[in-house]
Amino acid sequence: MEEANFVFNMIGENWIAFAIISLLPMIFLLAYALIAILGELKISAFIQERLGPMRTGPWGIIQPVAEVVKLLQKEDITPDSANKPLFNLAPFIMFAASYAGFAVIPFSSYFVPSGINLGLFFLLAVGSLGIIGLLMGGWASNNKYSLLGGLRAVAQIVSYEIPAAMVILTIAVMAGSLDLQEIIRQQSGWFWNWFVFGGSGGWIKIIFLPFSFIMCIIYIIASLAETNRTPFDIPEGESELVAGYHTEYSGMKFAMFFFAEYANMFIVSAIITIIFFGGWNSPFGDFMGGPIWGVFWFVSKAFVFVFLQIWLRWTLPRLRVDQLMYVSWKVLLPFSFVCFLALSLLVMLK
């Protein structure tokens, strides 16, 4: 097995290497957030036959920078009756939780910040840490809308973890590993080796192709719910709860929530890419293969799913709380059980 990290190869295992490795995802994240915010603005505008921001820079491409600067300048208000320590801590927990997820994301075969062999499990565990931030923010704001939003968020994310965990369990069974690099390596070759098409193997997998495909859809739906995006943006559903758990937040703390949401969007897109769409593998065999192109493939595949999330957001209305639970417990969970059984059978037959 080759060395998983080119930084260690280049400058050896010292503290500078560790600093670079932990900062690289942050740099990527900042650049990604700017692109994603602009993408959200522009895609929503084009879908709605508008032009979107046009004044800041040519075609408004500096708009996200302007928004970040605006948020930095804004007054940071802490409500009088809020629980101040919790109120101030919540956005940081939220952001830390989503940033922690980046620790195991393999951007390329030669770069993963931390190549632990429990990567999939780590993502699942850390992904649910953000709930604490949500609940803290909602509770500490001392606002009825925030409280309702926070409670809804917790109920929603906790229940959607289960179908998501079922999907991840299936992948673990199919790949026989929880190491993300290993999972990706198993999907190398042409795109029909991806787990969304049943993974590598003989013709027998064609029978099970619908199951793995449904599994992928289940994970996409569950991931939408985990990132609080439409149609599952109930915790911050603006028509009911004004802005949900972050109603009382302003300035930089609001920006942290915002940033965390976009970071989460990327993380779930990355997970979908890794477990179903072959991670950094080129879809066409050895065409444009290798570690450098790997980054390109990984990021572009993840961006497709970010685009999918934005696209869905500007298409669908929002579900109600009880319907959200219905979808989770009565639709996604049974379907994921059935698919789990079927795909386990496939593994046995292979």
């Binding site: 505008a45 084009f46 879908i47 036959e49 508008r50 032009l51 696209w311 500007w314």
Partner: peptide, 11 residues
């Protein structure tokens, strides 16, 4: 909505 994504804008 994807159809509208590529239509002419009216702004």
């Amino acid at each position: 909505t994807i159809d509208h994504l590529f239509r002419k804008n009216v702004t």
